[in-house]
């Protein structure tokens, strides 16, 4: 009997989530021999990203791609991946998600929330942009009104960088940037192109301060409907899709940045990161101290994976 898996996401069909989803769909249907039918539901059609996690807990949606910072309200430990400069480089990140830390996160998340993490997905760096000036040193961040998602860690990070963070809902963001209510913001590189922010944000700053993860989750209701064999096949499909897509994205990010400079007319700067990393470490420490032992332990596990 064919089982339908409704997988939602908040971005358009041809976005990164949509492409990741398409690979997952193909692999799942291949591995399960067509017994699991993945249906991708783009553009907030079945639930917004903010509500997607809850929808999986309720069992109204079977799977969802959710940016990590939108998981934090439901599972505060997720904020470790939101910490600035928590991953030293792409290899470190890969070791974390594929290793015991990744396994620990999956198990703990399932226990605390009843939601399965199928794949961490590609690592997307958030690139910073603004309309005021090129940023070459941390001093250039001073006083810039920066839109951030409503996430305490992100707010604290931009404060530590010397900017003036303004929490704004995504729905208000394009307008606020366009009219100059805020001076800038940060997003996954592709978003800057897809949302045409380059039209009114002349300065592109490569800080790689946040890794924006868009993991694929699945509801317990759905996973329980599967046979043991199907469950293994779906999980394998998710992991393989994640790896395959990460590879694609890695080369692409640099292409998009080039595009933003040549076609989009943005001025790119690659500031020295030492000051930013130092500021980020104070944020890491203060957040960890605030969140308690469990959080500190996880940060330590991640740091240990760097060696």
């Amino acid at each position: 009997q064919e089982i339908t898996m409704n997988v939602g996401f908040g971005a358009p069909e041809d976005s990164l989530y949509g492409r990741f989803g398409a690979i997952f769909e193909e692999l799942t249907e291949e591995y399960t021999g067509g017994t699991v039918d993945v249906r991708l539901r783009c553009c907030n059609q079945v639930s917004t990203e903010d509500e997607g996690f809850r929808a999986m807990q309720l069992g109204t949606v079977d799977g969802f791609f959710i940016t990590a910072n939108n998981v934090s309200p439901h599972w505060p430990l997720m904020d470790v991946t939101v910490l600035p400069y928590i991953f030293q480089n792409t290899d470190h990140l890969a070791r974390v998600v594929d290793g015991e830390v990744g396994d620990f996160i999956r198990a703990q998340l399932l226990e605390d929330t009843g939601v399965h993490l199928l794949s961490f997905g590609p690592a997307l760096y958030r690139d910073f942009y603004n309309s005021v000036r090129p940023v070459n040193t941390m001093a250039d961040m001073d006083g810039l009104k920066i839109r951030t998602p409503n996430n305490a860690v992100m707010l604290a990070t931009f404060e530590a960088f010397g900017a003036n963070p303004v929490p704004l809902a995504w729905s208000e963001t394009p307008t606020a940037l366009q009219t100059g209510t805020v001076d800038g913001g940060d997003n996954g590189t592709a978003f800057i192109r897809d949302m045409s922010f380059y039209e009114f944000m002349p300065n592109l700053v490569i800080l790689e301060h946040f890794v924006s993860m868009a993991p694929l989750f699945a509801s317990s209701t759905f996973m329980d409907r599967l046979s043991d064999e199907q469950r293994e096949q779906v999980m394998r499909a998710a992991i393989d899709a994640g790896n395959q897509f990460s590879e694609e994205v890695r080369t692409e990010t640099e292409e998009v940045r080039q595009w933003l400079v040549t076609e989009g007319g943005m001025t790119r700067t690659d500031p020295d990161r030492a000051d930013f990393i130092a500021a980020a470490q104070t944020v890491q420490q203060s957040v960890a101290a605030e969140r308690g032992q469990e959080f500190v332990d996880l940060v330590n596990m991640i740091n240990a994976a760097a060696e």
Partner: peptide, 9 residues
């Protein structure tokens, strides 16, 4: 066969 709780959410 989708849970009614969708209405509440």
């Amino acid at each position: 066969d989708i849970p009614f709780t969708l209405l509440a959410q």
